[in-house]
């Protein structure tokens, strides 16, 4: 194989590999990225049941109900434009309290319940889930919530 020829082949292999990685990544990102919704978004646009999304809003005061099994809770997330009932089975984060912000990862079921696999609340003094910072500015005050500013 000639020197130039070999260089060309190597460059081609590298390019094909990288372009393939890029294309696969771009294609998968469109499918697999989970979108952020507020209760208002869901009321307005609706969400396909079963699709993985993140739901963010305030935990409505007085809405948290513990179920008989001791590890499942139901509560309502609101944002002033809509409300969504949420069910979560697991150990709640320490800073999960009524009237505070929460981001839930999970999916809507057919009955209109949001089934959360995971709840994200502030877990240290500097960390706030990305989506919650927006809400702390305008929406929280509107709802009379008490999110601590970072």
């Amino acid at each position: 194989m000639k020197a130039k020829h070999q260089r060309l082949v190597l460059i081609c292999i590298a390019l094909v590999g990288l372009v393939a990685a890029g294309l696969i990544a771009a294609y998968a990102l469109r499918d697999q990225a989970s979108y952020f919704y507020t209760p208002g978004d869901i009321a307005e646009k609706g969400v396909e049941p079963g699709q993985a999304i993140r739901l963010g809003g305030m935990v409505q005061k007085g809405s948290v109900r513990k179920q008989a099994d001791g590890v499942t809770i139901d509560f309502i997330v609101e944002d002033g434009k809509g409300t969504v009932p949420v069910r979560f089975t697991g150990i709640t984060p320490d800073l999960f309290v009524e009237g505070s912000g929460v981001v839930a990862e999970g999916r809507m079921d057919k009955a209109g319940f949001f089934v959360a696999d995971n709840l994200l609340a502030k877990h240290d003094e500097n960390y706030v889930p990305r989506e919650m910072r927006d809400m702390t500015k305008a929406d929280v005050k509107k709802l009379g919530g008490t999110v601590q500013q970072p």
Binding site: A28, L29, Q32, A33, S34, Y35, F36, R54, R130, E131
Partner: peptide
Amino acid sequence: TEAFGTKVSVGPPYFNPV
């Protein structure tokens, strides 16, 4: 995407298989 006003998060369902 956030620069274009859409909030998404990317997790294991993307990273693992891809």
